[in-house]
Amino acid sequence: MFKNLIFFIVMLLTFDAWCYEDIVKKQSFFIPSFKTFNGNEIKNVRVGWESYGTLNSDKSNVILICHYFGGNSHAAGRYSINDAKVGYWDSIIGPGKPIDTDKYFVISVDSLVNLEVGNPNVITTGPASIDPATGKPYGMDFPVVTIRDFVEVQKQVLDSIGIDKLHAVIGPSMGALQAYEWGSVYPDKVSRIIPVIGSGWASANLIGWLNIWSAPIKLDKNWNKGNYYKGLAPVDGLTESLKVIALHGQHWEWANKNYGRNWADATHNPMDAYANQFQIEQTLYDIAKSRAILSDANHFLYLAKACQLFFTGHSSSSSEGLSRISAPVMIIYTEKDQIFISDQVKKTSEMIAKDGTPVYIVELHGSHGHFDGVISIDQAGEAISQFLNM
């Protein structure tokens, strides 16, 4: 990426986060006092962010990546040379890739109330944070936050770097909601948006599902109305909640094709049903348990509420909010999505295009349903590249 060693050293010494060679560094951003969309004040807000590529002289090559419900700002690259896990969209972000870091400065920010409180590479503020007024964790006294608040925190990070215009805003799932919000609230600051596997509002069906996602946490006796930070955390309830997401996010083909009616342990007596599990049951538990170890139950509930409350623009209606989007839009979706169903995504595109705003549709194919927006995003790589170069 860098033309010569001298240029590389100068950039590294001046602002190493602006350099991307597959190894990335998490940065921290501090807001002394943040006012939420609902008018509440949150003091001492900290969020993490990371970047890939080089910011050009007029700061016109910036692409903002907004992450999904269970994700964070680690969209690409590795934290160390021995890091086995790359960022979730590494297949499309990097030198010569569709979101080309030889050309663009790509930045992503950890959300408020980020799920992975236990991840050492996540910096976030939420219910598990210390309330400076009490010296204790906020718990459920933390103010309700919205997708708009996630956007406003991102904007403050960008403002601190002197970035006033975005070449594009891109994100999957909850990240798509943020992309719509950016296009609606700051139409003069966004040149194009790419919402992936997301629609312009949370439907009644999704609101109901988010309630179901959240229910096991509240049924766990250790939740104690959110006051568990001095005792046992509701890990069992959180695990069950994450199991629901693990299955809901997939298309039914995934389970049927990969697991069928096979038992997790074929040596057990199949009729002793409670001493033996099907493979799909064990798989969902294993996926959820590994996530629960790093996650916080209250943060989960706050994220779910933010998604339930979402409709683009947070104004009088979704149609009004979507009508404010003037930048070209490329919507990436899958017909097999069971979270943001395709009819709703198509309706979103129609509402945006109603006043002549250019809207392009790209369909993903696979058996992972909603999760294809992360797993199979490379299918849309060429379309993304062309759209960014328009």
Rank of each mutant, 00 (worst) to 15 (best):
K305F: 00
E50H: 00
I325N: 08
W213Q: 13
N4Q: 09
A133T: 14
S315D: 09
T312P: 01
A275I: 05
H299C: 05
L322T: 05
I361R: 08
Q279M: 13
D100Y: 04
R78F: 06
K3N: 08
I293W: 02
L13Q: 10
K97Y: 00
D220W: 07
A204Y: 09
Q154A: 09
K346F: 09
V145N: 02
Y138K: 02
G369H: 04
I163A: 05
N56H: 04
M271A: 11
D372I: 02
G226H: 10
F34C: 08
S290K: 13
V45S: 09
T125H: 07
L158M: 10
Q178W: 07
P172S: 08
V86F: 01
V86K: 14
F34Y: 15
A292V: 04
Y274D: 13
G162F: 06
F69R: 07
G198C: 05
K26D: 07
A202R: 01
Y259N: 06
E21D: 15
I193M: 14
K346P: 00
Q308L: 03
K136W: 06
G260M: 10
K218M: 14
F30P: 04
I280F: 09
E116Y: 14
M351D: 13
L112S: 11
S191G: 13
T348D: 04
I331G: 06
Q379V: 08
I161D: 00
Q178L: 00
H67P: 02
P137V: 03
C19W: 08
G39I: 10
K3V: 11
T134I: 10
A168R: 04
K136N: 14
L242S: 02
E382H: 05
A179V: 12
V196C: 11
D236L: 10
